[in-house]
Design a protein around this nucleic acid. Structure first.
Lengths: 238, 238
DNA sequence: TCAAAAGTGTTCTACATACACCCATGC
DNA sequence: GCATGGGTGTATGTAGAACACTTTTGA
């Protein structure tokens, strides 16, 4: 066997400098739920090439920053929120996806309770847009949105993620409405409740809805042990 | 609403040049199946920092190259193969994951029929290693391997991917062996065959095994319409 | 005739689905 | 009293899991 001279990492670095001219960004699909609609936080593109089109919040990854941290920074900058569910979905790296140059982006999605948190919507070009009313977007952001939406749809009935879109207390009707808004289908009430009941995710608060123009429903919350904080991902909870 | 001056992409590029100093690479988890074991193609690390450890084949992404193309190039360079199943799994971007500098890597996995293709194993430091006999690897490659293995395990009984590890003709016993090797469990033969039969993936070739020291089994092939070529991903086939 | 693996069917359980009626509240 | 949604149970179909015996071939 031929004896090979080992390179040090420092030597390798100098020989590969030409590859350090691709930028990496993160883009965040921030989902919210409002008025029985699934929404996504979008911002008007400030590039002439995409004038008038909506884009996803994103930013370049800094040299001293983990990619998960970068996506969390974008989330915090735009919403002011902490302790939010965030999950990486896919990297998008077509050569011409960004007109500024070669930018590979890593897409994340997050679930946010719009109604109970005050967002930092300082920029009025930033707003919650109904997911199913976006057709064309800047860059490849429509593809990114669709990919994240699909991931969310796959996850929603299996894992207790959808609670991140709701206030701490909610009725089964609200929970069903969120699921329907995400999946874009109507669900049978009895079967839905049976399935939720089997999952054993909920704790009965022994409280009732108030100020509803009909018979009030019971209020529930997600069991404490299923609450997820910050960047931690959900895995394999049944 | 304040009127905003739009930037062109060219202007934006110049203001973001400092972010173009993170390198992007792809790493490939190339799975194979041999001697009733799931194997992965690994190569001795040539970095002093990881002397003696196995690493995954990978390379930097070129400026004029899609990331999917980059992973396919790595695959072809190492194996000489075309028309191989390849799927992106996850981006890994911890700040210190690579000692040469800031390198974000995008992990792919692929499934390869070892036995019927002649690999370009020109480098004798490159070899097929049993997946379950790797504990420590260079970089964060053990984490990457585990992540890809988990993805494969999730997919294997649902989607017709495992056939990429086998020759075109195979017996149900071989198919079951592959599944067991991937999942690390024993499966009941009758239930396995029932499940495969329900999937309706197979075409009976009306041929039998030969040169086996026992009663020969029937040979099957994957139905033509389920064959996948090149970089195309499999989606939602039942 | 023996060893080794091929081939095959029934029962039980769990879960998804389809479906209809009475109840509590606000107005 | 009426409109609105809350709350509940049964019957059916499908899929997965457990489980054992006979058959075919090569040696």
């Amino acid at each position: 066997m031929a004896q090979q001279i080992l390179k040090t990492a420092a030597i390798e670095k100098s020989s590969h400098l030409e590859y350090f001219n691709i930028a990496t960004s993160v883009d965040c699909v921030l989902f919210g739920y409002e008025q029985k609609q699934l929404k996504v936080l979008v911002i008007k593109s400030d590039l002439q090439e995409f004038m008038g089109l909506w884009s996803l919040p994103g930013d370049f990854v800094r040299v001293d920053e983990d990619i998960d941290d970068a996506s969390y920074r974008v989330l915090q900058q735009r919403t002011g929120l902490n302790d939010v569910y965030l999950e990486q979905v896919h990297a998008f790296g077509s050569v011409n996806r960004h007109p500024s140059g070669r930018v590979i982006t890593i897409a994340y999605y997050s679930l946010i309770d719009i109604t109970n948190h005050q967002l930092r919507l300082t920029d009025n070009e930033l707003h919650w847009h109904p997911v199913f009313e976006l057709s064309k977007m800047a860059f490849d952001h429509k593809l990114i949105l669709d990919t994240c939406l699909q991931r969310l749809q796959e996850k929603v009935m299996e894992q207790p993620v959808v609670f991140n879109l709701l206030p701490g207390k909610f009725s089964l009707r609200e929970l069903q409405d969120v699921n329907e808004a995400i999946l874009g289908v109507e669900l049978d009430r009895r079967n839905f409740r049976k399935r939720i009941s089997l999952k054993n995710w909920l704790e009965d608060l022994n409280e009732m809805e108030e100020d509803v123009p009909h018979r009030p429903g019971k209020l529930y919350k997600l069991k404490d042990e299923l609450l997820r904080h910050g960047k931690k991902e959900l895995h394999e909870i049944s």
